[in-house]
Design a protein around this nucleic acid. Sequence first.
DNA 1: AGCTTGAGTTAAATCGTTTTAGTGCAGACT
DNA 2: AGTCTGCACTAAAACGATTTAACTCAAGCT
Lengths: 359, 359
Amino acid sequence: MTTGTQPLRRRATVKDVARLAGVSAGTVSNALSGKRPVDAATRERITSAIAKLGYVPNLAARGMRTGRAGTIAIFSSMPTAVAAGPSRLGFLMELAASAAIAALESNVALLLVPPIEDPATALATIAFDGAILVEPEARDPFLAVLAARGVPTVVIGPAGDRPPLAVELDYKVMAELLFDHLAERGARRFPLVIGESARASNAAFREVYLTRCAASGLEPTVISLPEADAERGARDALLRHISDGHDIDGVLVPIDAMATGVMQALRTAGLGVPDRVKVATRYDGIRARSEMPALTALDLKLDRVAQLATRMLIGAIDGGADTGAAQGSAEPPAPRLIARGSTGMTGRTGTTDSASRNA
Amino acid sequence: MTTGTQPLRRRATVKDVARLAGVSAGTVSNALSGKRPVDAATRERITSAIAKLGYVPNLAARGMRTGRAGTIAIFSSMPTAVAAGPSRLGFLMELAASAAIAALESNVALLLVPPIEDPATALATIAFDGAILVEPEARDPFLAVLAARGVPTVVIGPAGDRPPLAVELDYKVMAELLFDHLAERGARRFPLVIGESARASNAAFREVYLTRCAASGLEPTVISLPEADAERGARDALLRHISDGHDIDGVLVPIDAMATGVMQALRTAGLGVPDRVKVATRYDGIRARSEMPALTALDLKLDRVAQLATRMLIGAIDGGADTGAAQGSAEPPAPRLIARGSTGMTGRTGTTDSASRNA
DNA sequence: AGCTTGAGTTAAATCGTTTTAGTGCAGACT
DNA sequence: AGTCTGCACTAAAACGATTTAACTCAAGCT
C-alpha cells in the first residue's frame, strides 16, 4: 500500500546521486572532495541531487578506500584513572572535551578509550588514525604498543626517552611560578607535599623546590606520599609533621587531591589560611576553586594544550605518515598564576568566590 | 640493501593469512568470527599464521561489509556544556567514562561528540551505530536529527513525548529522598533553591517539594534562579532571602553549583552548617564532596546508569535494528542517600573522604 | 538403498567509496 | 600544421573484509 514511487528506502549511494545528476560516480566524488575541478553547472546539479536524495556518504567505505578511520583516540594510561576519582578524571576530561572540539573542526571524531589492562586489545578492536596519550608513565605500555604499530601519537606531558610528538608540559615553570609566589607572599618555611612515584612532574617539582630553597637559604622539607588515597594521606602526613613540632607558614602541594587533605589538616590544627599559612597548588580544578578559601593555582590552559595536541596529531596523520622526520615537540602556552585567597590574595583574578570570611 | 625476504612491509590482509595457512579467505573470516564451524586443526594453523604475520583486521573494510561502524556516540545537547563549567562537565564525563568501559566490553568504542551548533554536521562527519543522549531538552535538536536518520538512540534522563529507548532517571525519588532526609534531621523551614528552566528535573523537584510540604504542614518557599551563573546567583538570592528576615533551618538545593553558592551565603550570614542550617544537594560530584562540611547528596550510581544505557543501546543496535518494537525504557538503579556533615551526619556512609570533621 | 542433515570448505559476489588511466576537446604555443 | 597543456569527465579497478551459493563427504535415519 505504499505510494509506489518509493523504492523501499535504501540509503542513497554515490551512484544514485550520479545517476540523478547525469554524471559518473567519480565526478560526484570529486565534487564532494574538491580534489579535482568540476564544472560549476555540474556541481550544481550534483549538490541538488544530493539534497533531493538525502545522500550521506558511507564513511566506512570511504575509510576503507582512503585508509583513514576519521577518528583519533585519547588514552590515559593511568590504570586507575576512574578509580583515582573524579579529580584525576577531571584533568583528563577537561583535555578530552577540548580535544573533541578541536578534532571535530578537522572532521575527525574523538574516541574515548578507557584504561584497560591489555593495550593490544584496544588496537585490534578500535579503529583510529592517531592517538593522544595523557601523561604516560616512565615506560608506558600503551606507548610501546602504539609505537610498534606505527600509529602517530602525541604525548601530553613529559617527552620520554624516544619521544614521539609531544606537547611538553613544563613542570619546572609551574613549580617556579608557585614557589616564587609563596616566597613573595612571605612564606619562609613551607614544605613540599608531593607524590612519591617517579612521574616526571613529581621529579620536576622536587628539583625546583630544592634548588630554589638552596638559592634563597630556606630549609627544604619534602613530604613524599603515595598517590593512592592522596587526600587522606596528605592530611595525616601534614598533621604528623605539625604535631612533630615543625612550624610552617606555607605549603606547596601540587596535586590537588593532596591539597584538599592539606587544607583539612590545617583546619584541624587551627592554622588559619592564609593568615598563618599560605597554600598553593597546581591544577585549577574544582577542588582548588571550591576550597575555603579558594586555592591559588595555575591556569594550565588545558583547552589550548588539548587543541595544540590535536592539531599536531592531525597534522602528523595528514602529512608525515611516511615522513619519519615528523618528530618534534611543541611548547604549550605558558601557565599563568591564579592568585587566590589561600595566599592572601582576594580578588578579581579568579572566580567570584572571595566571600570567604570565616565567621 | 634490505635482506630481500622482507616484501617491503605492507599491512597483512586476510588473504595473506589464508595463503600462509593454506585455506581460503572465507575460512579465515569464519575462524575469526566463529560464525561458522572451522576444524580445530585448521583453526590452529590460522591463528598461528595470524600471529606470524601480525595480522590485524582492517576495521573499515569490515565495517563497510557489515554496515557497522563499531562505535557509539555520546552527546550532550547542552549548548554550553563546556562553558557551563567543570561541574556540568563532571556529570557528563562521569557518564562518558563508564559508558566507554561498558562499550569496550562489547568491542565498541565510544565517541565523544562535543556540543555543536549544527547537529546534522556530526552525523555527516562521524560514523557511529547508535547514540547516547544525556539529559536532552524539551524538544531537543539532536534527538530530532537522530530520530529522522533512524539512528538507535538511548536517552539518559527524562523520556520525552515520543520516547526512544531511555534510562529514566527518577527525579521524584531523588527529591523525596532529600526532602525526607532534611525533615527527618529536624529541618522545618527549608527553601527549595532550584533552576528556573523547564527541565524535567526542576519540575519534579518543585512538585515533590510542594506536595511534601503540604502533607507535612510546612510552609513552602521556592527560590527559582537562572541556571547560568548558578553559583553567584544562588549565593545572592539566599543572602537576600535571609536578610529579608526569613528564618531558615535548612536548604534543599539540588544543583551542585547552586549548593556551593548557598554554602557561601550561609557562611557570610554566619549561619553554621549543620548546627543552624542543614543542606542537601543532588549530584555527588567534587563540589559536594569538597565542601566544608561535605554535603549530603545522592549516589546516583552513574556508572551503573551509563552501563545500562550502553548495553541497551548495543542491544538495540544488534537486535532491533528493524524491530521498531524495540521501544522501551529501563529503570536505573535506585539512588541512595549519602548522609554527610551538612546534615549533621558524620560517617562511614559515603566515600573514604568523609573525614570532614570540624575541629 | 535412498534421503536428509550437517560439518567443513571454497570461489565469487558484494559493500560504497576513491583513484587510476584514459578520452575528447579547446585553446596556446612553436 | 603539429604538438602540448589543462579541463571536465568517464569507466573500471582497487580497497579488505564478510557473506552467499555451491560443493564434498560422512553420518544418521527410514
